[in-house]
Design a protein around this nucleic acid. Structure first.
Lengths: 187, 187
DNA sequence: GTATTCGATGTCATCAAGTGACATCACTGG
DNA sequence: CCAGTGATGTCACTTGATGACATCGAATAC
């Protein structure tokens, strides 16, 4: 028998999402979350850098999955084709649990601090994709544009998916949005 | 003679930028800034909602200027043409003081919290443009895409301008980036 | 089988951000 | 002259976040 219960990180994650959803992010203290998970506040900060981060665990997995998919595309293909492959990978990772994503999305969009964190995660993702594109020989400016455009497609499609029926395919939404972009962007 | 010196908001802004640049954002306390500006910390928070916001005063002026320019474009023009006009307006407002922008940009990109704030300001801007486009009859999805794409162009061009020579024209950079987008976004 | 080390946690102290309540005092309009 | 206004100061307090040190079960070494 362990001195402490296992899976503190997971319990903290669940408790945080539940409390944020129930009473709101600002009305929830770290002490509340920790006590709910059966640990102390100090332990919360050993698992998550701050009160926001507990909602964004797993973002490295998303990034790695997307970069892997991007790398798998032959360099002969254009930058946007590579980005499209990364978006396909993201759809698999993000499009699993519609209900959970909805709760999480509602919590995040209800609070500016959480929105900020979400945005910087997306920006980091885009920067990583741009880096990868540059390594493939894409000119710096084009790499930034393609990666950021991909992030825009991801955000717009994900939001549509959240607001739509649970059975809709996030991947199809992303592809449709991706196809629409050059038409809208044309003058 | 007034009981207190005028222009506390401006003095706080200058002191904050200087101290953030000298010792770094995290190494600067609100008390430091306030004392430098000859007021108390409590007064700092009466002028700026938090320690980050002092670097983002004037973002409403930028938003208003861009929305005004967007509105001036005849609705017959496509959404991207309207966004382009808004970007032109932003170039006038943002492209004035290269040295100051560079210092500010260096401070912001050196700190994740400040980056977050910058990103949410851009996202708010994009959301406002998208709203305006929808009012002009642009379909919701296209409006989001066009506005977010415009924000991408602004960010990429602004960064190039910051890293380039002071005499370069931000407006020209934005137009060139804008023209490049549909080519990159095409599969 | 006992000793040692390791790792996740608890405890305590402390700092900085942010906020509410109330006092102050120069200026302003009557 | 006097009441009211507005920017500020003062004080008390909550909460987020971090460093230092202690604890104790478990794995590992011997």
């Amino acid at each position: 028998m362990a001195r402490w219960q296992e899976g503190a990180a997971g319990r903290l994650q669940e408790a945080a999402l539940r409390l944020y959803a129930e009473r709101g992010y600002e009305q929830t203290t770290v002490a509340d979350i920790a006590s709910e998970a059966g640990v102390t506040a100090r332990t919360f900060f050993r698992h998550y850098a701050d009160k926001r981060e507990v909602l964004f665990a797993g973002s490295e997995r998303l990034r790695d999955g997307m970069l892997e998919a991007l790398d798998a595309v032959p360099p002969a293909a254009g930058p946007m084709a590579a980005v499209a492959a990364a978006l396909d990978a993201s759809a698999v990772l993000l499009g699993r649990d519609h209900a959970h994503s909805r709760t999480r999305g509602a919590v995040i969009s209800a609070n500016a601090e959480l929105m900020e964190r979400e945005l910087i995660k997306m920006a980091t993702l885009a920067a990583a994709m741009a880096d990868e594109l540059r390594k493939r020989g894409v000119p710096a400016g084009d790499a930034s544009l393609a990666a950021e455009a991909g992030a825009v497609v991801l955000r717009v499609a994900f939001e549509q998916w959240l607001n739509g029926p649970p059975e809709a395919s996030l991947r199809d939404l992303m592809r449709a949005t991706m196809a629409r972009l050059p038409q809208v962007a044309a003058p």
